[in-house]
Design a protein around this nucleic acid. Structure first.
Lengths: 137, 137
DNA sequence: TATGAAAGACTAACTAA
DNA sequence: TTAGTTAGTCTTTCATA
Protein backbone atom coordinates (compact mmCIF):
# COMPACT_ATOMS: atom_id res chain seq x y z
CA UNK A 1 0.00 0.00 0.00
CA UNK A 2 1.63 3.19 -1.18
CA UNK A 3 0.31 6.57 -2.23
CA UNK A 4 -0.38 5.37 -5.77
CA UNK A 5 -2.65 2.62 -4.39
CA UNK A 6 -4.43 5.17 -2.25
CA UNK A 7 -4.99 7.48 -5.21
CA UNK A 8 -6.40 4.63 -7.27
CA UNK A 9 -8.72 3.58 -4.43
CA UNK A 10 -9.95 7.10 -4.02
CA UNK A 11 -10.83 7.39 -7.71
CA UNK A 12 -12.60 4.02 -7.68
CA UNK A 13 -14.49 4.94 -4.53
CA UNK A 14 -15.91 7.97 -6.32
CA UNK A 15 -16.59 6.08 -9.57
CA UNK A 16 -15.72 2.40 -9.82
CA UNK A 17 -16.44 2.47 -13.55
CA UNK A 18 -13.59 4.86 -14.34
CA UNK A 19 -11.58 3.18 -17.13
CA UNK A 20 -8.05 2.08 -16.23
CA UNK A 21 -6.67 4.33 -18.99
CA UNK A 22 -8.35 7.36 -17.41
CA UNK A 23 -7.12 6.46 -13.91
CA UNK A 24 -3.63 5.98 -15.38
CA UNK A 25 -3.69 9.47 -16.91
CA UNK A 26 -4.91 10.99 -13.68
CA UNK A 27 -2.26 9.38 -11.46
CA UNK A 28 0.51 9.54 -14.06
CA UNK A 29 1.17 5.88 -14.87
CA UNK A 30 0.22 3.25 -17.45
CA UNK A 31 -3.02 1.35 -17.90
CA UNK A 32 -1.22 -1.94 -17.14
CA UNK A 33 0.10 -0.68 -13.83
CA UNK A 34 -3.35 0.45 -12.73
CA UNK A 35 -4.86 -2.89 -13.79
CA UNK A 36 -2.20 -4.92 -11.98
CA UNK A 37 -2.61 -2.87 -8.84
CA UNK A 38 -6.40 -3.11 -8.84
CA UNK A 39 -6.06 -6.88 -9.29
CA UNK A 40 -3.58 -7.06 -6.41
CA UNK A 41 -5.77 -4.89 -4.16
CA UNK A 42 -8.76 -7.10 -4.94
CA UNK A 43 -6.68 -10.23 -4.30
CA UNK A 44 -5.52 -8.85 -0.94
CA UNK A 45 -9.14 -7.92 -0.12
CA UNK A 46 -8.22 -4.30 0.45
CA UNK A 47 -10.91 -3.84 -2.19
CA UNK A 48 -13.60 -5.99 -0.58
CA UNK A 49 -15.92 -5.75 -3.57
CA UNK A 50 -17.16 -3.64 -6.48
CA UNK A 51 -20.61 -2.47 -5.58
CA UNK A 52 -23.24 0.23 -5.98
CA UNK A 53 -24.42 2.81 -3.50
CA UNK A 54 -28.18 3.03 -3.76
CA UNK A 55 -30.89 5.24 -2.45
CA UNK A 56 -34.08 3.36 -3.20
CA UNK A 57 -36.04 5.51 -0.78
CA UNK A 58 -35.90 9.12 0.34
CA UNK A 59 -34.59 8.67 3.85
CA UNK A 60 -31.36 7.20 5.12
CA UNK A 61 -30.81 6.82 8.83
CA UNK A 62 -28.59 5.36 11.53
CA UNK A 63 -30.48 3.37 14.12
CA UNK A 64 -28.36 2.73 17.21
CA UNK A 65 -29.55 -0.22 19.23
CA UNK A 66 -28.78 -0.86 22.86
CA UNK A 67 -28.64 -4.59 23.47
CA UNK A 68 -29.13 -6.53 26.70
CA UNK A 69 -25.78 -7.60 28.18
CA UNK A 70 -26.10 -11.37 27.92
CA UNK A 71 -27.42 -11.43 24.36
CA UNK A 72 -25.74 -13.01 21.32
CA UNK A 73 -25.03 -9.89 19.23
CA UNK A 74 -24.05 -11.91 16.25
CA UNK A 75 -27.40 -13.71 15.94
CA UNK A 76 -29.24 -10.42 16.39
CA UNK A 77 -27.12 -8.78 13.67
CA UNK A 78 -27.86 -11.71 11.35
CA UNK A 79 -31.57 -11.14 11.89
CA UNK A 80 -31.38 -7.38 11.19
CA UNK A 81 -29.38 -7.77 7.98
CA UNK A 82 -32.24 -9.80 6.49
CA UNK A 83 -34.56 -6.80 6.68
CA UNK A 84 -34.92 -5.37 3.18
CA UNK A 85 -34.38 -1.72 4.17
CA UNK A 86 -31.13 -2.45 6.02
CA UNK A 87 -27.93 -1.73 4.06
CA UNK A 88 -25.42 -2.41 6.85
CA UNK A 89 -25.34 -3.80 10.35
CA UNK A 90 -22.39 -2.83 12.50
CA UNK A 91 -21.48 -4.35 15.82
CA UNK A 92 -19.73 -1.51 17.62
CA UNK A 93 -17.97 -0.76 20.86
CA UNK A 94 -19.74 1.59 23.28
CA UNK A 95 -23.19 1.75 24.81
CA UNK A 96 -25.43 1.11 21.85
CA UNK A 97 -23.67 -2.03 20.58
CA UNK A 98 -25.43 -2.46 17.23
CA UNK A 99 -25.93 0.18 14.54
CA UNK A 100 -28.18 -0.23 11.50
CA UNK A 101 -27.71 1.87 8.39
CA UNK A 102 -31.07 1.91 6.63
CA UNK A 103 -32.53 3.19 3.36
CA UNK A 104 -36.27 3.80 3.62
CA UNK A 105 -39.10 5.12 1.45
CA UNK A 106 -40.03 7.72 4.06
CA UNK A 107 -39.79 8.55 7.76
CA UNK A 108 -42.83 6.36 8.41
CA UNK A 109 -40.88 3.37 7.21
CA UNK A 110 -37.95 4.35 9.47
CA UNK A 111 -40.42 4.44 12.31
CA UNK A 112 -41.72 0.98 11.44
CA UNK A 113 -38.18 -0.37 11.56
CA UNK A 114 -37.57 1.19 14.97
CA UNK A 115 -40.82 -0.33 16.23
CA UNK A 116 -39.89 -3.75 14.86
CA UNK A 117 -36.47 -3.49 16.52
CA UNK A 118 -37.97 -2.45 19.86
CA UNK A 119 -40.38 -5.38 19.78
CA UNK A 120 -37.45 -7.76 20.19
CA UNK A 121 -36.72 -8.84 23.76
CA UNK A 122 -32.96 -8.40 23.37
CA UNK A 123 -33.38 -4.71 22.49
CA UNK A 124 -33.21 -2.36 25.48
CA UNK A 125 -33.46 0.92 23.61
CA UNK A 126 -32.82 2.73 20.35
CA UNK A 127 -31.52 6.08 19.19
CA UNK A 128 -32.12 7.23 15.62
CA UNK A 129 -30.40 9.86 13.53
CA UNK A 130 -31.49 10.82 10.05
CA UNK A 131 -28.62 11.17 7.61
CA UNK A 132 -29.22 14.61 6.14
CA UNK A 133 -26.17 14.83 3.90
CA UNK A 134 -23.45 12.43 2.82
CA UNK A 135 -19.96 13.12 1.48
CA UNK A 136 -17.72 10.41 0.06
CA UNK A 137 -13.97 10.45 0.66
CA UNK B 1 -39.14 0.47 -9.80
CA UNK B 2 -40.42 -3.02 -10.39
CA UNK B 3 -39.13 -6.47 -9.45
CA UNK B 4 -36.80 -6.57 -12.46
CA UNK B 5 -35.13 -3.35 -11.26
CA UNK B 6 -34.79 -4.80 -7.78
CA UNK B 7 -33.20 -7.99 -9.14
CA UNK B 8 -30.71 -5.97 -11.18
CA UNK B 9 -29.83 -3.78 -8.17
CA UNK B 10 -29.28 -6.82 -6.00
CA UNK B 11 -26.89 -8.38 -8.53
CA UNK B 12 -24.96 -5.12 -8.89
CA UNK B 13 -24.79 -4.66 -5.12
CA UNK B 14 -23.07 -8.03 -4.85
CA UNK B 15 -20.78 -7.41 -7.86
CA UNK B 16 -21.03 -4.17 -9.78
CA UNK B 17 -18.74 -5.55 -12.49
CA UNK B 18 -21.16 -8.27 -13.60
CA UNK B 19 -21.50 -7.87 -17.40
CA UNK B 20 -24.91 -6.76 -18.71
CA UNK B 21 -25.13 -9.96 -20.79
CA UNK B 22 -24.69 -12.07 -17.67
CA UNK B 23 -27.25 -10.05 -15.68
CA UNK B 24 -29.62 -10.37 -18.67
CA UNK B 25 -29.27 -14.17 -18.67
CA UNK B 26 -29.80 -14.31 -14.93
CA UNK B 27 -32.97 -12.21 -14.91
CA UNK B 28 -34.25 -13.50 -18.27
CA UNK B 29 -34.10 -10.46 -20.54
CA UNK B 30 -31.79 -8.88 -23.15
CA UNK B 31 -28.52 -7.03 -22.64
CA UNK B 32 -30.11 -3.83 -23.97
CA UNK B 33 -32.91 -3.92 -21.44
CA UNK B 34 -30.49 -4.32 -18.54
CA UNK B 35 -28.37 -1.46 -19.89
CA UNK B 36 -31.38 0.83 -20.39
CA UNK B 37 -32.61 0.10 -16.89
CA UNK B 38 -29.22 0.63 -15.24
CA UNK B 39 -28.98 3.94 -17.12
CA UNK B 40 -32.45 4.92 -15.94
CA UNK B 41 -31.71 3.91 -12.34
CA UNK B 42 -28.49 5.94 -12.46
CA UNK B 43 -30.31 8.88 -14.04
CA UNK B 44 -32.96 8.77 -11.30
CA UNK B 45 -30.18 8.52 -8.71
CA UNK B 46 -31.57 5.32 -7.27
CA UNK B 47 -28.07 4.11 -8.08
CA UNK B 48 -26.09 6.95 -6.50
CA UNK B 49 -22.75 5.70 -7.77
CA UNK B 50 -20.64 2.73 -8.73
CA UNK B 51 -18.10 2.32 -5.97
CA UNK B 52 -15.83 -0.04 -4.07
CA UNK B 53 -16.03 -1.29 -0.51
CA UNK B 54 -12.54 -1.13 0.98
CA UNK B 55 -10.68 -2.06 4.09
CA UNK B 56 -7.26 -0.44 3.78
CA UNK B 57 -6.43 -0.71 7.46
CA UNK B 58 -7.35 -2.96 10.35
CA UNK B 59 -9.70 -0.64 12.18
CA UNK B 60 -12.93 0.92 11.07
CA UNK B 61 -14.69 3.37 13.35
CA UNK B 62 -17.51 5.88 13.67
CA UNK B 63 -16.43 9.22 15.10
CA UNK B 64 -19.42 11.28 16.20
CA UNK B 65 -18.67 14.98 16.37
CA UNK B 66 -20.59 17.54 18.36
CA UNK B 67 -20.46 20.87 16.58
CA UNK B 68 -20.91 24.37 17.96
CA UNK B 69 -24.40 25.70 17.20
CA UNK B 70 -23.53 28.62 14.94
CA UNK B 71 -21.03 26.74 12.80
CA UNK B 72 -21.31 26.05 9.05
CA UNK B 73 -21.62 22.24 9.09
CA UNK B 74 -21.20 22.01 5.41
CA UNK B 75 -17.77 23.67 5.36
CA UNK B 76 -16.64 21.50 8.27
CA UNK B 77 -17.84 18.35 6.49
CA UNK B 78 -15.96 19.44 3.37
CA UNK B 79 -12.78 19.72 5.45
CA UNK B 80 -13.18 16.28 7.06
CA UNK B 81 -13.83 14.50 3.77
CA UNK B 82 -10.38 15.59 2.57
CA UNK B 83 -8.71 13.54 5.31
CA UNK B 84 -7.28 10.41 3.75
CA UNK B 85 -8.63 7.97 6.36
CA UNK B 86 -12.20 9.27 6.08
CA UNK B 87 -14.53 7.18 3.89
CA UNK B 88 -17.78 9.02 4.60
CA UNK B 89 -18.94 12.18 6.31
CA UNK B 90 -22.57 12.29 7.35
CA UNK B 91 -24.42 15.34 8.56
CA UNK B 92 -27.04 13.88 10.87
CA UNK B 93 -29.94 14.96 13.03
CA UNK B 94 -29.43 14.69 16.80
CA UNK B 95 -26.81 15.90 19.25
CA UNK B 96 -23.58 14.96 17.55
CA UNK B 97 -24.37 16.54 14.15
CA UNK B 98 -21.49 15.12 12.11
CA UNK B 99 -20.40 11.49 11.87
CA UNK B 100 -17.19 10.30 10.25
CA UNK B 101 -16.77 6.75 9.04
CA UNK B 102 -13.04 6.07 9.03
CA UNK B 103 -10.74 3.26 7.92
CA UNK B 104 -7.43 3.35 9.80
CA UNK B 105 -4.22 1.32 10.02
CA UNK B 106 -4.62 0.87 13.78
CA UNK B 107 -6.24 2.38 16.88
CA UNK B 108 -3.37 4.85 17.16
CA UNK B 109 -4.36 6.33 13.85
CA UNK B 110 -8.00 6.53 15.00
CA UNK B 111 -6.74 8.41 18.03
CA UNK B 112 -4.77 10.83 15.84
CA UNK B 113 -7.91 11.59 13.87
CA UNK B 114 -9.88 12.26 17.04
CA UNK B 115 -7.14 14.59 18.25
CA UNK B 116 -7.08 16.45 14.94
CA UNK B 117 -10.85 16.81 15.04
CA UNK B 118 -10.79 18.10 18.62
CA UNK B 119 -8.17 20.69 17.72
CA UNK B 120 -10.72 22.50 15.57
CA UNK B 121 -12.54 25.38 17.26
CA UNK B 122 -15.93 24.37 15.86
CA UNK B 123 -15.71 20.95 17.53
CA UNK B 124 -17.24 20.79 21.00
CA UNK B 125 -16.75 17.08 21.65
CA UNK B 126 -16.43 13.65 20.09
CA UNK B 127 -17.63 10.12 20.73
CA UNK B 128 -15.96 7.19 19.04
CA UNK B 129 -17.11 3.65 18.42
CA UNK B 130 -14.98 0.99 16.84
CA UNK B 131 -16.79 -1.06 14.22
CA UNK B 132 -16.10 -4.60 15.37
CA UNK B 133 -18.11 -6.44 12.75
CA UNK B 134 -19.92 -5.45 9.56
CA UNK B 135 -22.73 -7.21 7.69
CA UNK B 136 -23.91 -6.10 4.26
CA UNK B 137 -27.59 -6.30 3.30
C1' DT C 1 5.56 -1.08 -21.81
C1' DA C 2 3.59 -1.67 -26.18
C1' DT C 3 0.36 -4.19 -29.20
C1' DG C 4 -3.19 -7.25 -31.06
C1' DA C 5 -7.08 -10.11 -29.68
C1' DA C 6 -11.12 -10.75 -26.92
C1' DA C 7 -14.73 -9.10 -24.15
C1' DG C 8 -17.91 -5.86 -23.20
C1' DA C 9 -20.53 -1.54 -23.91
C1' DC C 10 -22.70 1.73 -26.95
C1' DT C 11 -25.28 3.52 -31.13
C1' DA C 12 -28.95 3.56 -33.81
C1' DA C 13 -32.46 1.53 -36.38
C1' DC C 14 -36.21 -1.41 -35.76
C1' DT C 15 -40.35 -3.94 -33.50
C1' DA C 16 -44.00 -4.54 -30.34
C1' DA C 17 -47.10 -3.23 -26.78
C1' DT D 1 -45.05 6.85 -27.00
C1' DT D 2 -42.35 3.89 -24.29
C1' DA D 3 -39.85 -0.40 -23.51
C1' DG D 4 -37.35 -3.90 -25.54
C1' DT D 5 -34.29 -6.07 -29.14
C1' DT D 6 -30.44 -6.67 -32.25
C1' DA D 7 -26.53 -6.02 -35.41
C1' DG D 8 -22.65 -3.41 -36.17
C1' DT D 9 -19.14 -0.38 -34.24
C1' DC D 10 -16.29 1.43 -30.72
C1' DT D 11 -13.96 1.14 -26.19
C1' DT D 12 -11.78 -1.19 -22.61
C1' DT D 13 -9.50 -4.94 -20.84
C1' DC D 14 -6.39 -8.64 -21.08
C1' DA D 15 -2.46 -11.60 -22.53
C1' DT D 16 1.66 -11.91 -24.82
C1' DA D 17 6.05 -10.69 -26.01
Amino acid sequence: MDDLDREILSILRRDARTPYTEIADEVGTSEGTVRNRVERLTEEEIIERFTIATQTGNVKAMIEIEVDVDVDHSALADAFVEWAEVDFVWEVSGEEDVVLIVDCADTGEVNDLITRARERDEVMGTKTRLILEERVG
